[in-house]
């Protein structure tokens, strides 16, 4: 049973690889999609900056996106540890939990 389950799991791994070729066989015209952020309707200065960066310099936008996400993730981690340490709960005995 378990072995069978793993086989199914493996097949699912192949699916994303197989899917496009099936679609390719079905045909369809290929045209790149380009998105332009509509900076006309954005009021917030920071959002406007990033939307503008998206339109003009996508590389810098990508670097910002990764850095901000990482930094914000770290910040939240520290903040939460700080808060949880003050709840008075014993958190040392909890198991390691990821994803």
């Amino acid at each position: 049973m378990k072995r069978w389950m793993r086989r199914v799991l493996g097949a699912a791994g192949l699916l994303p690889v197989a899917a496009p070729s099936l679609v390719w066989a079905a045909g369809g015209k290929a045209s790149q999609l380009v998105v332009v952020a509509d900076t006309r309707v954005i009021q917030n200065a920071a959002l406007k900056y990033f939307a503008d960066l998206y339109n003009t310099n996508i590389w810098l936008f990508a670097v910002w996106a990764v850095v901000l996400t990482a930094v914000y993730g770290c910040f939240l981690g520290l903040l939460m540890d700080f808060i949880m340490a003050r709840t008075g709960l014993d958190l040392k005995s909890r198991k390691i939990v990821e994803h």
Binding site: V34, Y54, A62, V63, A65, L68, T69, G77
Partner: peptide
């Protein structure tokens, strides 16, 4: 993944931040 999807212009930072905040709590 974040880098390559941003480079392809398929990321919405505002949503990332909103969700991250919720996820951390």
């Amino acid at each position: 993944g974040a880098f390559t999807y941003s480079l392809k212009g398929r990321i919405e930072l505002v949503a990332v931040f909103v969700m991250l905040t919720g996820a951390a709590i």
